[in-house]
Amino acid sequence: MIASAAHREFEKVFRARADTSELAAIRRFVEQIALEVALDVERIFDLKVAVSEACANALEHAGCESGWLEVCARCEGHRLTFIITDRGLFKPPSAERRECPNRGMGLPLMVALMDEVSFARTPGGGTQVSLSVFLDKDATLSL
């Protein structure tokens, strides 16, 4: 029997301390979700890079004043989306960032690796980044 894993619908939230040391754990969450919808190794890698970049941006620029960073994984129809929301105020680039003039590749990477990227302001003045991959291409799972 062939069933499309993409037809599953679910939403899972991973809550991590707002610290860059948590990025590896966030990437493991991404991998676990991507495996659940039977994405291939390359797509899993793409998602890990894109979500990690979005989370690093949230931690670095916007701050996470609640002390927590939430990553929401939503699977609906033929789309898997990771939503990263921060609630903090925008902070100017840090001294450390100025030492790294070649940063700034995070957004181009997200756009290049994902099927769809969108940004929205949240009512609280935070930023929400949505990173989607379409599951049609490779999410057919043999049961």
């Binding site: 890990k48 790294c100 700034g104 995070g106």
Partner: peptide, 13 residues
């Protein structure tokens, strides 16, 4: 097996 834009920036610098 994983690299992000900050680490790339370190290499370029």
């Amino acid at each position: 097996h994983f690299i992000d834009s900050t680490a790339l920036g370190v290499l370029v610098s």
